[in-house]
Amino acid sequence: MNSLIRFIQRVSTTLLFLVLLFLSLWLYISTSYYQKAQFGRLALGLSGRLAERVSGIGQYIRMREANIGLRQENVALKNELEFLRSYITLSDDKTMRYSRLTLFDTLNYSYIMARVVNNTVNHQQNYITLNVGRCDGVEQGMGVVGHDGVVGVVLAASARYSVAISLLNTDFKVSARHRPTSTFGSLWWPGRSYTHVRLAEIPLHVALAVGDTVVTSGHSAIFPRDVPIGSIVGYEIAEGNAYSIDVRLFADFRSLDYVYVVRSADRSERLELEHNFSPNAND
């Protein structure tokens, strides 16, 4: 009798183990990274606040680097501003001038300033926590860029914090463009070094050179066109008449500090349009 009870106990424990194992594996495999982040939103208020406190400590150490980055960005923006100003004022034709101004008006991306409060680079699926949330106008699906390139995409936002999928996440892909030739490909992180990503689907007839810049394509409603990503450091011929290109990131993901969340004004309209006309509009 005693041994029977012990036997039942052992069997029921093993059964419990198998049920829980099945449950956890099922949760892991069947949910997308998007759904996983939705669960994470439950804890975002707490973890975000804690991480913000802690990251504030290291902020002073990185202040110099952040300062240099911001100054460089300032110079680039000033140059661009002067270029655009001269471009507009040089054209004498008033209607031309007006049409150009309205053109700028319709291409509106606006930026929300954010600080990275938590960020990992040593996992295969890395995520970034930002200190801005729905109260600041952040919504899921918005792009995140740093002063030197693409950082990620917002997956979920609580009231004051949001979590973004990092470019350094093996589940994430972004549409990219080889700048000199304007050829489009898809870019993702192979999960090794946090300084390198891979660009694929660039056809073999394209002339590549080491040092060429890779930028965003502007095909999605997430990132504006021509946000820098990295430069080519090497390439090889992969299967299927395409290059497999090794790209070194411009952004240093270990020391991400100040970033911008990209809000595109026509995003909802564009998404609606694409949704209505895609062949599988139901998913």
Binding site: L20, S24, W26, L27, I29, T31, G40, L42, Q125, Y127
Partner: peptide
């Protein structure tokens, strides 16, 4: 299982840490 799942919620890896801990 519970500790792993809690870690998963914080790290956006639902089920990963739960499996390992279990």
């Amino acid at each position: 299982f519970a500790c792993g799942l809690l870690m998963d919620v914080f790290m956006h890896t639902l089920g990963l840490h739960a499996t390992a801990m279990l």
